[in-house]
Write a protein that binds this DNA or RNA. Structure first.
Lengths: 324, 324
DNA sequence: CACACTTTTTGACAATTGTCAGCATATAGT
DNA sequence: ACTATATGCTGACAATTGTCAAAAAGTGTG
C-alpha cells in the first residue's frame, strides 16, 4: 500500500473529529464523497464508513423547518378560528390512519423541544399518541426542565406504561422526571382519598398541579376508545358520561362540548391531574389525529386547555368544517 | 399520455402540500425518488422538482446535532478549565484560517438560536466574525427577542456596517432590532457626552445596557487588528493601551490579561456599551478563532464577560495550553 | 378553437452513493 | 513471534440521484 494512510489510534482525540469533519464536509459544505476522501487522505469507502457512523451516532439532524407546518394555510386557519397560539399541520394525503398518526406524532416530536424554555414544568399525559411523541423526540438537552406524569397507572393495551412514557419523554428531552406512583383509578373513593393524602403521592400531585405546560391527546367517547380499553371506565361508565353530554376525554377525564369536566362516580376514585389545572397554561399542546378525534379536540380547545395543536391536514379540514 | 396525471391548479391548497409530502417521504420516511413517484402518482422527474423546490424554499434543515460539538472532549476541557457554561468546538483539521473562521461562524449560527429564550435582549457586537454569524443564521422565529447594537458606527473595511450586522441578526432571528445611531468614537469628549445625552441616543444606550445576553468576538492588539483598521484607534492609541497592559479588545474597548477595562483617552470619546454591562450576563457568547485570538479570548473570559465559547479545535487546544 | 404559457413526462446518460467480498495493515494481547 | 481483532483499502457493481433536451399535456385567454 502507498503508505499514505494513517490509522486512528485508540483514544486519539482527532479520531472522533474525523467523523465530524467528514460529516461537516458532506452535509454543510456539500462536497461529494470522492472529494472528501481526497481532502482527508482516506479512501472513499472510509468516507462512507465515517458518514454512516455519523448517522448511526445521531450526529445528523435532518428535519423540515417548523415554519413549513405552522405557516401552512390550514394551520393559520386553525389558529385564527380556535384562538390558538399556533397550530402545526402535517400533510398526510395518501396515508393510512396509522401512518397519519405516526407522522403527526413525529411532527409534534420535532416541534416540542422548540416550545420549551428553561425552567419549564411539562405535564405529560398518557396514551398511544403521547407515547409515540415521546419515542420520536431526538435527544435534546433542555435546561432545567421537569416532566411530570399527569395520570396514574392503567392497564395498558399498548405495551408501555404511563411511567415509561413520562420517563422516555424526560430522558429524550434531557429533563428531570416526576412520576405518579399510583393507579389512575381505584375501586373505592375513600381508598383514593387516603392514597392522595400519602406524602409521596401528595407531593407528586402537587408537582403536576404546578406544571406550566402540558402535552396531551384528545380521547373519543367511542366504545373502542382508550379510556375503556385501559380499564379506566367500563362500558356502563361510558354510557353514563355520554348521557351526561360527554364529547371527549382529556387526561382520563370526561368533558362536554364546551370543555367542562363532567363530574361523575369515576372522578373521586381517580388519581391524576384535575382538569382545572390544565386551563390557562403557558402551553397546552394537543396532539391528535383522525376523524373520530375532531369533536373531542374541539371540546378540549373550547375548555381552554389548548394553546397549540398538532394534527394532519385532513383532520384540520374536518375541524374547520365542524366549527362553522 | 395515460391521463393519470393531475396538474395542480393555481391556488390549490394541496399544491404546496405535495412539495412538503415529497420532502417528508424522502427525508423522514427515507423513501427513494422512484417509490415516492409511484405513491404520489407523478414522474420521478417531478419528484426531483418538488425536492429541489423544498430545498430552495428553505424547508429542509440539515445540521449536525449541537451535542456533537458541545460534548467534544476539548469543549468539555474548555468549559471546565475556564468555568464556562458550555463550549462549542468545531474540528477544522485541514482548513485555511479563512475556512476555519467561516466554519466557526457557521457553528455559532447554528447554536445561537437554541441559546435564546422568550423575552431575551441580545446585545450584538460588530466585526467580521459576528457579521458572518448573523449572515449564517437560518431564518428562525424567536419569540419576543430584541437585538441591540452594542457599538457605534465605524469606518468599515468589510463592506458592511454595524447597523446592517445587527439588522441582519435581528431579521434572521425573527427579532426586533434597536440600532445605535451614532459613531463609535468622536473627536472630542465633550461632543461625545452631548451626543450620549441626546434622547434618542440615550434611549438606545439604555436599551443596550439592559441586555441579558450578548454575542461578541475578541479582538487582538496587533497593528493589523480590526480596531485600527476600522479607525477606532490609531497606531499611537494602540501603542499606549498595549503599554498599559492591553491584551485584547472587546466591543471596541481595550482589556488587560485579567479582563479589566483599560481606561484611556479613547473611552470618553466612545459611544457604545460599557464593559461592566457585559459582566454577569445570562449568556455571553464569545465567537473567535485563530492563534492570534487566544490571549484576547482568555482575557475576555477572565473578565467575566463570557459564559459560552465557540471556536475551533486548534484554537481550543492553544487556549488550554496557554492556561496551564 | 387556436394560441401561448406553464407544468409534467419521457428517456437517456452522467454522476454519486451504497454495498460487498476479499485483502492489507495496524494494534493489542499472550 | 504469533494470533486475534479492528480498521482501512481495493475494485466491482448495483442502486439512486442529478441533469437535460424534447415532447406531451394542462390551463387560461381571446
Amino acid at each position: 500500500m502507498a503508505g499514505t494512510t494513517r490509522r486512528r489510534t485508540v483514544g486519539q482525540v482527532s479520531g472522533e473529529s474525523i467523523v465530524i469533519e467528514a460529516a461537516w464536509m458532506y452535509y454543510h459544505d456539500g462536497l461529494n464523497q470522492s472529494k472528501i476522501a481526497k481532502l482527508l487522505k482516506v479512501s472513499r469507502a472510509t468516507v462512507v464508513n465515517y458518514l454512516q457512523e455519523a448517522r448511526e451516532r445521531g450526529y445528523i439532524r435532518i428535519s423540515l423547518a417548523p415554519e413549513v407546518f405552522t405557516n401552512h394555510q390550514l394551520a393559520q386557519e386553525l389558529r385564527d378560528k380556535f384562538g390558538l397560539q399556533a397550530a402545526f399541520v402535517l400533510p398526510t394525503g395518501i396515508n393510512t390512519e396509522e401512518e397519519s398518526l405516526m407522522r403527526v406524532a413525529r411532527g409534534a416530536a420535532e416541534w416540542l423541544p422548540s416550545l420549551l424554555t428553561r425552567g419549564d414544568k411539562l405535564g405529560v399525559a398518557w396514551g398511544r399518541t403521547v407515547y409515540e411523541v415521546a419515542e420520536a423526540i431526538e435527544q435534546t438537552a433542555t435546561k432545567d426542565v421537569t416532566v411530570s406524569q399527569l395520570v396514574g397507572s392503567m392497564a395498558t393495551p399498548y405495551g408501555f406504561t404511563a411511567e415509561i412514557c413520562s420517563a422516555h419523554m424526560a430522558q429524550n428531552l434531557g429533563a428531570k422526571c416526576i412520576n405518579l406512583h399510583a393507579p389512575a383509578v381505584l375501586s373505592d373513593p375513600d381508598l383514593a382519598a387516603r392514597l392522595r393524602a400519602e406524602p409521596i403521592i401528595h407531593a407528586q400531585l402537587e408537582a403536576l398541579s404546578h406544571c406550566n405546560k402540558a402535552i396531551f391527546a384528545a380521547g373519543s367517547c367511542a366504545p373502542d376508545s382508550h379510556i375503556v380499553s385501559s380499564g379506566v371506565a367500563s362500558n356502563e361508565d361510558l354510557d353514563w358520561y355520554v348521557n351526561q353530554g360527554a364529547t371527549g376525554v382529556l387526561c382520563g377525564r370526561f368533558i362536554n362540548a364546551e370543555g367542562h369536566p363532567i363530574v361523575g362516580k369515576l372522578d373521586d376514585r381517580m388519581i391524576g391531574v384535575e382538569l382545572d389545572k390544565l386551563q390557562g397554561l403557558d402551553m397546552g399542546l394537543l396532539v391528535s389525529d383522525g376523524a373520530d378525534k375532531v369533536i373531542p379536540m374541539i371540546s378540549a380547545i373550547a375548555g381552554g386547555y389548548v394553546t397549540h395543536v398538532v394534527t394532519s391536514n385532513e383532520t384540520a379540514r374536518l375541524m374547520l368544517k365542524a366549527a362553522t
